[in-house]
Design a binder for these strands. Structure first.
Lengths: 201, 201, 201, 201
DNA sequence: CCTTAATCGAGACGGTACGTCGTGTCTTTAT
DNA sequence: ATAAAGACACGACGTACCGTCTCGATTAAGG
């Protein structure tokens, strides 16, 4: 793809530059071979660095992938505000779907199981994965409450988590792609009723 | 655990006997080292058989684990029937939690990511994992409809899937153990409202 | 050099065949990159086998090289018998020089230092390196005694070792090649006088 | 051993002071882990300096060890002069043995093989290793010639080299320690006869 | 005395080899 | 024919060391 540059002599990448190069190589590997096929060797080779530089930053493969996930999580998506709760929810779920369909999604799905034995890492990842989605959904519901569409008491963490949880559940059990009508079903049969609105058929 | 019997000479197992021995060894390994730590070598050694005998039956590690999962799925749990929907739902979710906490749960969680790239295996596993739970929840809801507690129209596949999906979601993002009050929250804040019943505070 | 044959499937070498292939690859590597440049990876690659197959037989690099040395030591050279002690000694030293100049010599010189910390291996190697040469020299001297050239009492282990020791000493301190006149000097100035014969100028 | 002094800030060594610190650290490492276990990292760490400071002075590990050897070679031992050739020779060989038993000996034995591919370094080392010993033996023999014990014609470079060569040969093939009776055998069976004296039994 | 250049210390970097482990295939021997 | 055992070829693991580099700190020397 690129000409082989020997970074041993000459401009040697360090610090943040190298960090970013590795993270991007990780995402590229995830897209190409998936989470299960990801190897430290492969990432190092693609990033034109050494395994030592990887292990100096991340003790395990999971930590590396977690860093890649968090790296992409920085770019905060704008909260959907279409003027109606239903379309807002559809747009919000679409953001979740898009994220799960990207290389990051591959990583998210892959790491969910590997890390369960490491509570520390689990908690760390939850922050960048779950809470972001929860904030998204909660905000959408609050906008609807301010508009008078729903009552504020219906907004609970459990309700906010339901939408993304169902989307993730579909991805884990059925895999991509996610049919569009399914997204509508989740909104109409679950989320809107939970918000206290009459069901749409 | 058992006395070491050299199956090279003497009573050599084959057919179903050997099949079961391997499956049970797989479950034992899952309980001991988890899905990530499971190896074909380890299973073969624990089952006192050879890797060839494993690969003759299951081409991949995932197939082996899938077989172990399906093996335990045979024992059909009785549908909870306590006389009320709320307690039925709590009991049903408890069954799901129990399953996820067992060695099988370790396998289920582990295999979810590995298999996404193999649609064939994904579909196969879905049958033994998801549909079982869906049938459980759907049955509980039907009992309530027959009792007149809820209206039959509220029962949709999406609603039936919501409970187990939220439980699984918690396991994947928070890990065990599952607090009991969380189960109650799922029932009271999500499932009962979805069934058309007023929320319990 | 040769077409890459994937030995994973197809005729897979085992036992003695594989053993010999590895030993010969080791000698080839010694000839090409020397003892210091010898790597297990390199040998495995040249022999088209795996590192595991190497380590299964020889726990250390030294053991592998030792095996290569001993493998070539099997071919017993005939004892020189030219009819005169002086020419016999010259021929005997020539054999020593030839051995030290060959790939085996590279190995012998290289392993001498690495193994000193392992008394077990040291003793083992001594047998195939030193004793062979001692036997050679002792035999040559005995032939001379039988011919009446020298007295039998002059033959001691110390005297028999002197010749090869001086040759090795030159190799270690000066390196190859070994000038022919030097061999003559060793014979005329050291070995013959030690055997009780008048010095030749 | 010593209190950890951070030389980054505070009294920073350079020039000869640093040179000596590194050489001494090299000798200490040789004594502790041997030549094979010697690493540039280890020496730098022990000397509390950086690898760059090492490589600025010595391009290779061999050069570093060679410098350490030569550093200790400065202290010229007095030539033995006991009044008799035999005791002088025993004392001279004892000096050789002592040198080979010290950390320097470990270095000498180790470097003999590594450097054979670098003729330049080989020649350089020969000066500090071999010629010193040769001068020692030659001087002892000359003293005996002046005393009338032996004839001057028997003194040749080859004869002078024989003693140390046999001692080194034993160290390389048998390893330490060197039995005292062996030293006597070398003197009585080899060196004295070579000097033209009757053999001692 | 102050600047300036050289040197030092620490350690990151790209790379290679280490010795181990697991994979999936195969050969061998025994039932 | 199939079972048990394990050798085999391969590749990834995580570590150690190599020799090079960057960086800031600290000296010594000259103006």
């Amino acid at each position: 793809m690129e000409q082989p540059v020997d970074h041993r002599r000459g401009p040697r990448r360090r610090g943040e530059v190298l960090f970013n190069a590795i993270v991007e190589a990780t995402l590229a590997e995830l897209a190409e071979v998936g989470y299960a096929g990801l190897t430290m060797d492969g990432v190092a080779q693609r990033a034109r660095t050494s395994k030592a530089s990887l292990y100096r930053r991340w003790p395990t493969r999971q930590d590396l992938v977690a860093a890649a996930i968090q790296h992409t999580a920085r770019t905060t998506e704008p909260i959907p505000d279409t003027g109606g709760l239903r379309t807002d929810l559809l747009a919000a779920l679409d953001l979740v779907v898009q994220r799960l369909t990207s290389p990051v999604g591959e990583a998210v799905r892959g790491i969910l199981t590997d890390t369960l034995r490491d509570p520390e890492l689990t908690r760390e990842l939850r922050e960048s994965m779950v809470s972001g989605r929860n904030r998204l959904l909660t905000q959408v519901l609050r906008q609807a409450a301010e508009r008078g569409e729903i009552r504020a008491e219906t907004i609970t963490p459990r309700v906010a988590a339901a939408g993304p949880a169902l989307v993730l559940h579909h991805f884990l059990t059925q895999g991509p792609p996610m049919p569009v009508e399914l997204r509508a079903q989740i909104v109409d049969e679950v989320l809107l009723p939970l918000a206290g609105l009459p069901r749409v058929q």
